[in-house]
Computed example of a mutant assay.
Amino acid sequence: MNPPLATLVGVRPHRVDGAALRRRVGGRTVVVTGASRGVGRAVAARCTAAGAHVVLLARDGGALASVADRLPAAGGRASTIAVDLRDTDAARDAAERVLADHGPPALLVSNAGHSIRRDLAAYTDRFHDVTRLAGVNLLGPIALALPLLAAMRARGGGHLVSVGTVGVGLPGPGWSVYTATKAGLDAWLRSVSPELRGDGVAVTSVHLPLTRTAMSAPTYGRSRLPALTADGAATWVCRAVVTRARVVSPWWARAGAVATAALPGTIDRLAARAWRR
């Protein structure tokens, strides 16, 4: 896709200053959740290549070990912690283990997520879908982040990057549970960011457009819609690590969020018509 068209549809590839990324993370501890595949694995590879010690978190310990063995070595290294974020006690224990073994991280990339495309009628009798996504997308990430953020604040510096979706500010029929849980985390970050800023801890929310990963494949595997690759999305994340921007999002998602807030009734009617079609 040519650059002007990529910019128009919100999948413009970013460039990352490798030297700047190394200055941010080289020789420091970086924690990446959802690191066994997709965007998380690509971010972990970038940070390891930049000389960081990357702590990989995901449910599948075997997959994590395989990723750690294959990460590029350029002065960096990797270790793994298998944890299911749906278990909030286990998530907090994982954070405490990071602190005990490595001290406060310079960077936490909260990337793990779970997505289900299901309309309201389809999960009326499946409340476990709600609790499952809330655990992975909202409660677990907060349980993991709390001890790490406390340690960052005490040290006087750090950075939390949350990998979310453009859907947090837009109506998403069929994606209600996914967007609600991701939007909940985004709202939490919006509220704690001013508190953290005073202690030198930055917060970035990355709102990714459609990205080709195993998570999106069941719904969009055959779609011809413009999309980022996992590596392209990792570039967005790593650029955010360098710039420490508060929000990274395509222009149309920001415009859509403003329109949704300003004209909720109109946007709701338009979304309803699109959903019926």
Rank of each mutant, 00 (worst) to 15 (best):
G34Y: 04
L263E: 01
V166K: 04
L146N: 06
L196P: 07
R276S: 14
L107Q: 04
A259H: 01
W188P: 09
P141G: 09
G51P: 09
G103Y: 11
V242C: 13
H114T: 08
V136R: 03
Y123E: 07
V242E: 13
A150F: 00
A150N: 09
A151H: 12
P209F: 10
V83N: 07
L138F: 13
D199K: 00
T33C: 03
D101E: 15
L71G: 08
L133R: 05
V258D: 02
R59P: 10
V43K: 06
S205T: 13
W188G: 01
P173Y: 09
G174E: 04
T213P: 01
G113K: 05
D231M: 00
V247T: 14
R24D: 05
V39L: 14
R70I: 00
T229D: 08
V83F: 06
G26S: 09
A180P: 07
A253P: 07
G75Y: 03
V32W: 08
G10Y: 03
A42Y: 03
R77N: 13
A68Y: 03
N137L: 10
G198T: 13
V166W: 06
N2Y: 02
V43G: 10
R239F: 04
T181L: 01
V30H: 05
V201H: 09
V136G: 04
P3L: 13
S115T: 11
L71Q: 08
A187L: 12
G198D: 10
T48F: 05
A154R: 15
A145N: 08
V39E: 04
A52S: 10
A49G: 15
V163Y: 06
L120G: 02
A230S: 12
A271M: 12
G62H: 10
R77D: 15
E96F: 00
L5A: 13
R153M: 12
L270M: 14
G61F: 11
A19T: 14
V192M: 05
P13H: 13
P218S: 05
E195C: 09
V248A: 10
S193C: 04
A52I: 12
L71F: 11
A106S: 15
T165F: 07
H14F: 01
V31P: 12
A227Q: 07
R269G: 12
N137H: 03
H102P: 08
A245E: 11
D199M: 00
V241W: 06
G232Y: 05
V177S: 08
P250L: 05
V83A: 11
H159W: 10
A42D: 13
A91C: 07
A255I: 00
A50K: 03
P226R: 08
D129H: 14
T243C: 01
R132Q: 11
D60A: 07
C238M: 09
V11P: 02
A245I: 00
G26V: 11
V16C: 11
R222S: 14
V248K: 02
S36A: 15
I267L: 14
G140R: 06
I116S: 02
F127H: 12
P250H: 06
G157F: 04
D129Y: 13
A240D: 08
W252S: 09
R37A: 15
L21N: 08
P3C: 01
R153Y: 05
S79I: 01
E195P: 13
R153A: 14
P105C: 05
L149T: 14
V67F: 08
D89P: 00
A227D: 08
S193G: 14
A20E: 07
R97Q: 14
R70T: 13
P4S: 10
T181E: 04
